[in-house]
Write a protein that binds this DNA or RNA. Structure first.
Lengths: 333, 333
DNA sequence: CTGAAAGCGCTAACAA
DNA sequence: TTGTTAGCGCTTTCAG
């Protein structure tokens, strides 16, 4: 084991000097610095980060709680996180929690046990027990994408309500008046906001809300497939369906075609997220593009602010969406 | 900071006893154990894992080098890794390297600097410098999915050559004789093996190899789209195309349709991987299913064997593939 | 600018 | 079964 002491001996200086040379080379005389660096090279010395972190009480690790890495939208958010973190000298520990609260709590514990400095949570749930931190310390956490209503920390999200309203209005603009919606899990704030936006659009257009046109899904292609089956089987089937995720929209399109109907001729379908496959579906998906990578970058910036004590109270940032019109929606006929 | 010493005082025992109670409760008398656990609770004590790991010289962290988490195939491998790791008490540090060697080297350094115990590399590249470890220590690494020819460590992979041969034979069996192939990057062992399997099948059927029917892609839908464009534009266009990944196959299908041809009526298309979207493409994709999660589980098992010193030389495991026939391939007409 | 020395919080001999 | 003690490898006062 080649440690700092060996290097010190080799260079003929004290361990303190070696430490200083490595951390703040500028406060060391050029001559000693050269001696030390030479010794470091000769000894093939690599500082034991375990010890460094232990001693300096910070790890420069960020844990990211992801509901599921199998979702390509989250993959983009994660890219943004990694890019920003790396730039600031932090490493990212990705945790695929499958949305399970126990998993989230387990990984969040890496912060209380000082294996990581903070967490970025991509789901609306606070993984820390109430007594994990001293009363008025700010939580070392940032909530992104799906955000708690009373987030106990800074957060970044989309204006989901406005985005859902925009895409519903696009559908209404095409002449659709019976518009189905395949939504996410009931209790998600994401779903609630998007349903609200959908209702806003209907109301503004003077269309009565038909609750039975709202089907729950699970953000997977298969659940979209199932939900579309319900919607299409009705006598008074909708002429357009807004899906809360592209994955569900892709499943829905397959089902609609299987039932012998055409998209968009018989039924228009809109998605949400603009994942890579959205433009490769047949027909290509009309959807809401989210600035996924930007969510990641923002989240990192906010978290580091908290960790380095530069924050003044929890912030809430809203990032812009964009309506992307492709071939899966068309004028009602 | 509530540390082990505080707990010891509170319980009226030595720090060693507290440590023991937490690590091996059974070698401590029930009475002391109760006292200690009570004190732990009262003090709200959480061991500083940083210190634990530093002291015990192991982190129970595994770093996983993933070329890109945006690929849903890797997402499945990662699930398998996480599941197995968790079971064995290890945490997973996911590193999205984008296939960049500098990134891989940076993350691999977490092992030499003792931030992690070992690495699972999903790409055919050794991220460690030659002198990172003592000459005949086994590398704390396992190579999975895409494997180095002379892997300096244990590895798990598919019999890519046989799988490619099987799917090509499926195409030949349907009467196709001009079969294009959209392959991956030239230098990948994966590509080399799959091209070899493709050639095997042709040869066995007495079909001459036409090199110009092999187009390189990059495993993305877009690259499949481009490559298919080349293939389809030819006068002597193939009647079937074998793509080295489902993502490329999905891109290829879109291009073929855009050129006014039908899949599979005019051109059959086969993929590789069996990602979730494979069964939701139109038509659903004929492909090779890989036991992605099993790759992950195997890799963890092998790595832990190495880390805990129970290995006897590098092993090589081959996992089985399965030909999944769906609607994108049909009899030539 | 450099060195000596005191730990960080914990584990692991070794003794008792 | 429990306590004492000596560090792990590093950073950081505090003197010099």
């Amino acid at each position: 084991m080649t440690n700092i002491r060996k290097v010190a001996e080799l260079a003929g200086v004290s361990v303190a000097t070696v430490s200083r040379t490595l951390k703040s080379p500028d406060i060391v005389s050029p001559r000693t610095r050269d001696k030390v660096l030479k010794a470091v090279r000769e000894a093939g010395y690599k500082p034991n980060l375990m010890a460094v972190q232990f001693r300096s009480r910070r790890t420069r690790n960020l844990v990211v709680l992801v509901p599921t890495i199998a979702n390509t939208f989250f993959a983009r958010v994660i890219s943004g996180i990694q890019e920003a973190a790396q730039q600031q000298g932090y490493s990212v520990l990705l945790c695929n929690t499958l949305g399970r609260e126990e998993s989230e709590a387990t990984y969040a514990k890496m912060v209380t046990t000082r294996q990581a400095d903070g967490v970025i949570q991509l789901r609306a749930y606070n993984p820390f027990p109430a007594d994990a931190f001293a009363p008025d310390t700010p939580l070392p956490m940032v909530n992104a994408c799906e955000v708690l209503d009373e987030a106990p920390c800074s957060s970044v999200k989309l204006d989901n309500r406005a985005a859902a309203r925009a895409i519903t209005e696009h559908l209404i603009g095409l002449g659709h008046r019976r518009i189905g919606m395949i939504k996410g899990p009931r209790r998600s704030p994401l779903t609630r906001d998007r349903v609200a936006g959908y209702c806003d659009a209907l109301e503004a257009a003077g269309i009565a809300l038909d609750e039975s046109l709202l089907c729950p899904g699970k953000f997977t292609p298969h659940s979209g497939y199932e939900a579309a089956g319900m919607l299409v089987a009705r006598d008074d089937r909708p002429s357009a369906i807004f899906c809360e995720s592209d994955e569900m929209a892709i499943g829905a399109i397959q089902r609609i075609k299987q039932e012998g109907l055409r998209v968009p001729d018989d039924i228009s379908v809109a998605g949400f997220d603009d994942i890579a496959f959205a433009s490769f579906s047949d027909p290509p998906l009309t959807t809401i593009a989210q600035p996924a990578e930007a969510f990641g970058r923002e989240a990192v910036a906010m978290l580091i602010e908290v960790l380095e004590g530069r924050e003044e109270g929890a912030k809430q940032r809203i990032l812009p969406y964009e309506l992307v019109i492709r071939g899966s929606t068309a004028v009602k006929r």
